[in-house]
Amino acid sequence: MNEVWVFHGAGGRFTSSVFASQAQAEEFIQRYRLTGCLTKYPVGISVYDWAVKEQLFEHKKPAHYEAGFIQRFTTASQEHYYYDPDDLG
């Protein structure tokens, strides 16, 4: 499966960057001492469909099939890391 690493800066409304590897993303984050979350996303499939396919999410309510739910769907099962330059010293 193809994947990308997406960085969402703290307080940002939209993603600020997408990388082909975690190493590329971390170099960018460290260079600018950024705060935010780096998350691995599958390519060519939504996170919602991926989570259902991998049996990481189970529909339990009718709302789970609705567009509003699907378009905001994320899962803690995605590999993700939080960065804060203050934690580095």
Rank of each mutant, 00 (worst) to 15 (best):
E3S: 14
E3H: 08
V4N: 08
W5E: 00
F7V: 00
H8E: 07
H8D: 04
H8V: 12
G12Y: 14
R13L: 10
F14Q: 13
T15E: 02
V18E: 05
S21L: 01
Q22E: 11
A25I: 07
A25T: 08
E27M: 14
E27P: 05
I29L: 03
R31M: 03
Y32P: 00
R33L: 06
G36P: 04
C37V: 13
C37A: 15
C37P: 03
L38H: 12
Y41W: 07
P42L: 00
G44N: 07
I45V: 12
I45H: 06
S46L: 03
Y48A: 00
A51R: 04
V52K: 01
K53G: 09
L56K: 13
E58K: 10
H59W: 11
H59K: 11
K60E: 07
K61C: 06
K61D: 05
P62V: 07
A63Q: 15
A63F: 14
A63M: 10
H64M: 03
E66T: 04
E66I: 00
E66D: 11
G68F: 06
G68N: 13
F69E: 02
I70D: 00
T74H: 11
A76D: 02
A76Q: 10
Q78Y: 03
Q78H: 05
Q78E: 06
Y83G: 09
D84L: 11
D84Q: 12
D84S: 14
P85V: 13
P85M: 10
D86P: 01
D86M: 14
G89Q: 09
G89H: 12
